[in-house]
Design a protein around this nucleic acid. Structure first.
Lengths: 258, 258
DNA sequence: GCTTGCACCTCACGCGACGTGAGGACGCAG
DNA sequence: CTGCGTCCTCACGTCGCGTGAGGTGCAAGC
């Protein structure tokens, strides 16, 4: 089976011009041409194109793509393995960025200022990238983006005040429970932790149990967050951390309770 | 505290030229200049730069970055929320790509040819990207990439034959066990499933229990994989799937038994 | 038979986001 | 006062295409 430029372009989600360009630079020249001079792509060409697009998406320049694809010692399995390695690495980086955003959000939520140096931690050992694109096209139609947009639109100062009130109320109940001597893994403490988690989910983002325990650890690890909780009542920071952890474990044991 | 171009560039992991460029296009003009005309960046400027780099990394053009950052109705929390949404979305996409690579690897492993159309499924509803960079610099030094490189280098035809032999041996033992009437959640079946998983990990990539169950589902869902296993013995496809699942559950219950 | 339309072709210039010098100014160390 | 290091401002180069302009091959309708 052979395909024309238009078919391949539609199929691969790229433009005809891109295929022309890859032909120009010798990255992907169709194996045949019709007598009219039209490019005819074989299945093997399509396979190569798929590889090209994969590496390109992962940040390789066209020269580099040509280098890895024309590597004589690289069988298909080697490519797949490398691709898998690149993907997992990239996912890990994005997860770290997401975790940093979660921490920044939590700082914002309880009213702590981060220094500009800390803001850059999102990027880790940053090395410049280049991603250019019509983002409205790409992200504008996506669910998570829209959900974020919607949630944000309706928020005003009064909402923020409501949140602060909820937060303060929760803090008082937490302090009372702590004073009562109830252990951190008591039913009541876990319920407060769960309420804390849902408050974040309702007002900010979908806070999973995993993320939540991460926040808990931060409360005892980061002196500013520790200070925030210790101001409620000394000893509360670790108390909250333990309650969050106990609540997460409870959810693992009985995931169907709500 | 104020910073010079060089300091900011080193700090943020970008070049001085990039800062000049952002100043030229009005995306980030330093709030002050020294009497010698040198740019002086304030903490607020750094915060804005961090936002710029964040959105840029996620594929926004500089125009679009300017648009979202100069949006008058967007408070810091709105940005954080949007960033979190974008990140989770992108992570999801990469995970899907990784899953597609895992399936392709599995097809390669058992010797099934995918049609070119299927190869493109990696990209889902693909929309062209543009990531240009020195990948050797970026990926060349990373762990996962190096690991992949090392593993691949030593592989030759004899290794591949050894793998086929192991695979065949495993298939025979599987068929024998299936004939013996042992249920899929028996100790022996689960051990065979675990061996299967480790074989993938040893020869190809780190196959987690989650990925493994995904492969199991594929064996019954995809007719070509089903055919591959049914050729060993009719009924084996679902048998393998169930054994893999049972083995994964066993690992959840007693994760410390190696 | 002739036009119309579509998908293809080949130039060739344009653009975004910088890279890469060229040529010069400031400040301070020896 | 002479380097040196960092900063400045042009200004052209690069990469990966986008975007026409102008022409060709071919099936369908008039």
């Amino acid at each position: 089976m052979e395909y024309s430029v238009g078919q391949v372009a539609a199929f691969a989600g790229i433009t005809v011009r891109t295929l022309h360009h890859y032909d120009e630079v010798g990255l992907l020249s169709p194996s045949t041409r019709s007598r009219a001079g039209h490019r005819r792509y074989s299945d093997a060409d399509l396979t190569r194109l798929q590889q090209i697009l994969f590496y390109r998406e992962l940040g390789f320049s066209l020269d580099e793509v040509a280098a890895v694809l024309d590597d004589p010692v690289a069988d298909p399995v080697a490519h797949l393995r490398r691709q898998h390695a690149l993907l997992t690495e990239r996912i890990e980086r994005l997860r770290e960025m997401a975790a940093a955003v979660e921490r920044a959000m939590e700082a914002e939520r309880v009213g702590i200022d981060l220094t500009p140096e800390e803001r850059f931690e999102v990027f880790g050992d940053f090395d410049p990238d280049q991603y250019a694109e019509e983002a409205e096209r790409r992200w504008g139609g996506t669910d998570a983006y829209r959900q974020s947009q919607r949630r944000v639109c309706g928020y005003g100062k009064d909402d923020w005040l409501r949140h602060r009130a909820e937060q303060a109320d929760w803090g008082e109940r937490l302090a009372a429970l702590f004073d009562s001597g109830a252990p951190a893994d008591s039913e009541a403490a876990m319920d407060l932790a769960e309420e804390h988690r849902r408050q974040i989910t309702r007002w900010f983002y979908d806070c999973s149990y995993e993320i939540h325990t991460g926040l808990g650890e931060m409360y005892v690890a980061d002196p500013r967050f520790t200070a925030y909780y210790e101001k409620i009542k000394p000893g509360v920071a670790t108390y909250v951390r333990d309650a969050i952890l106990a609540n997460a474990v409870r959810h693992l044991d009985e995931p169907d309770r709500t």
